[in-house]
Design a protein around this nucleic acid. Structure first.
Length: 205
DNA sequence: CTCACGATTGGA
DNA sequence: CCAATCGTGAGC
């Protein structure tokens, strides 16, 4: 058995509506690479979709400096600051000029970075259980906004493992589709997906 | 130019 | 339930 590498998720795969990509990203991995070469992987266990025409979408009203990258080609990283203290990371989807993105809301990390404090370590499976928490855990901030998800970059995406895919096919793992969290508009749209009974999913999992 | 508020979180 | 904390953008 020779060495094998996992290819990053391709741009073409992301050139679809966010509502199609969001459930498909469940089970895929977000990879964080630091300048020293260290890698951290997190299996995506919760996502939300944001689309044009969606009142909860940051690009709903008009194109601005902040939402600019959502109008870009698929495969870009949209990172923004929320409540003045947390960051949220999105995968830009769909065609260039069509503002769409998938918010990554929770990860199951393969290991904990050394900067995670002792209190967080008490519940390791909750360290990345929420969009703000996962960005803090992987040190993701606005300096990564507009970056392309690609191998060798600070961030990239990898497809589901065969084992994860099989667990969905055979029904031993279930995806739940429900309404999104923390919004004041577009509350009724069922554009949140998460792995049923997963301890790493954010609140209301 | 101003200022209310947010795709959150953790603690009372 | 509520405060923390600050960039954003709608409205004047």
């Amino acid at each position: 058995m020779t060495h094998s590498t996992v290819p990053a998720i391709a741009t073409d795969w992301l050139r679809r509506p966010a509502t199609d990509v969001a459930p498909d990203l469940i089970g895929c991995s977000l990879v964080r690479r630091f300048d020293d070469g260290s890698l951290y992987r997190g299996v995506i266990v919760e996502t939300e979709a944001y689309t044009p025409g969606d009142p909860a979408c940051h690009a709903y009203r008009r194109r601005t400096a902040r939402n600019e990258v959502m109008f870009g080609p698929p495969g870009l990283c949209y990172v923004y600051l929320i409540y003045g203290m947390y960051h949220c990371i999105n995968v830009v989807t769909n065609h260039d000029t069509v503002p769409s993105a998938v918010l990554i809301r929770a990860l199951e990390l393969d290991r904990l970075p050394p900067w995670i404090d002792e209190k967080q370590r008490q519940k390791p499976q909750r360290v990345a259980a929420g969009p703000g928490k996962l960005c803090r855990a992987l040190q993701i901030d606005r300096t990564l906004n507009g970056n392309r998800f690609d191998v060798g970059q600070p961030l990239w995406l990898e497809p589901r493992t065969a084992a994860f895919q099989q667990s969905i096919v055979d029904g031993s793992m279930n995806l739940v589709q429900t309404t999104r969290i923390g919004l004041t508009q577009g509350v009724e749209l069922p554009w949140r997906w998460y792995v049923a009974d997963c301890p790493a999913v954010s609140k209301r999992g």
